[in-house]
Design a protein around this nucleic acid. Structure first.
Lengths: 241, 241
DNA sequence: GGATAAACGGTACGCTGTACGGAAACGATG
DNA sequence: CATCGTTTCCGTACAGCGTACCGTTTATCC
């Protein structure tokens, strides 16, 4: 089955079914996939995991879905269709902040979404309704159409990178604190004179700096980056044509 | 062997070797890995590919390297050590533009680098020298240390997202033009009234818009996004404390 | 010339996604 | 009611992956 037909399955008129009835519909497979992926937390889940969680043999999944990649696309679109979103009100700035917050919540609810790259490539109802709504936030901006799109994806790509950074540091801290790491491997670096050779990196660095007890606060970096982007758009709108 | 020791292998005093000499050093394995990855273009290369290219059996690689993941880290650091970089001169703005251009060239020379997420996690000489140099571009900014780091990674993350977008559209166009796609699958969407239901997405959208012959120019989006970020930093520096 | 130490590299294991095909279960038709 | 066409079910199997294991080979040190 073509991916597009599956994506829009709920809007395509149903043909009276023939042959043996399926014990699982596409919806159930997609739902199982999302639950498993949420539990695993990244894209490292397998078809056998999805099948086990759904209570069916592996190959039964392939009655509903052509391939893992296709299932992934359906999962992505489903998550976007179900995502919570605050009402779009106020200035373009507050609207874009809403977009950022909504996207961040989405990526935190389904961390594996932050690991997929294709933002627009999926032409499903969930993706399109999300995209249309988010374009509404930049519609009033004094920009060309391509630039509106660029401004929007600037925000969204930034959110994704930030969520990944936040998750990454959280994961790292849970495995081993920076102090522990430094106690184990750091003296080697210290013996090589790294601190003297890279003074800025040692003082500021997210990784090296942690070792020297610099506060690495991805949360603060998120706020900073977002406001920088919004300020930049503001400057571009005010100073532009 | 710990990864840190391998990363800094050129600066660690050599111990007189004992036992059977290796027919391939770490450097050669890393070099082979980079060449293979460059040829493949993404992270989908295997240890057997690297071995074949190096002219040795697979398991011989494991004499120099613990695991594929470790090899990948060594490859990343090596690429950063070898990367070309223009001299850092002029205002912070032009310096950051240099940083962006250098990073873009790096990611285009080694496309698979755009697919790895860990930007700072690798504490190797290549990564550190790159990071130190790039911090120099934001050092003069009137920002706190964490904000300097945030500003820098804002630029770098943006470059990575842009390079991925550019590569993605280029790859897609080479497989099938938007018109071909639309002729095959688009009428289904059109029949569902997608264009009327999502007017903004249809007009502006990178994917849908392509189908309707909207010009999608990731190159322009890159220039736009970078200048927005730089304007934002400028506003933040001028208006801040 | 042992002893020791390291790399060599063939074999094999567990894991992945999924192609294949006989069996089974339905609606439609004679 | 029997048969046929259609579809799903799902066990088996295969190619690919990273790499653990380990006997063999080749070096240096005493």
């Amino acid at each position: 089955m073509q991916t597009v037909r599956l994506l829009w399955r709920h809007r395509i008129p149903v043909v009276p079914p023939r042959g043996r009835p399926a014990r699982m519909g596409v919806d159930q497979v997609v739902a199982s996939g999302i639950e498993v992926a949420d539990r695993v937390g990244n894209l490292g889940f397998g078809m056998r995991d999805v099948a086990r969680h759904a209570g069916v043999p592996v190959m039964t999944l392939y009655s509903s879905v052509d391939a893992r990649e296709q299932l992934l696309e359906l999962m992505i679109d489903q998550c976007r269709a179900e995502m919570a979103h605050a009402p779009q009100r106020g200035t373009w700035r507050s609207r874009l902040q809403t977009v950022a917050a909504d996207n961040r919540a989405l990526l935190e609810a389904h961390p594996w979404l932050a690991d997929v790259e294709s933002e627009r490539a999926i032409l499903g109802p969930g993706t399109l309704v999300k995209y249309e709504r988010e374009l509404g936030a930049v519609a009033s901006l004094n920009l060309s159409d391509p630039d509106k799109d660029a401004a929007l994806s600037l925000v969204i790509d930034f959110v994704r990178a930030s969520v990944r950074a936040i998750r990454h540091t959280a994961l790292e801290q849970s495995v081993e604190t920076a102090a522990e790491w430094w106690a184990r491997e750091g003296e080697l670096l210290a013996g090589l004179g790294v601190a003297e050779e890279f003074p800025l990196a040692s003082r500021i660095g997210t990784a090296t700096g942690q070792a020297y007890n610099a506060a690495s606060d991805p949360e603060r970096a998120f706020a900073f980056g977002l406001s920088v982007i919004l300020d930049g758009i503001q400057a571009r709108v005010a100073g532009g044509s």
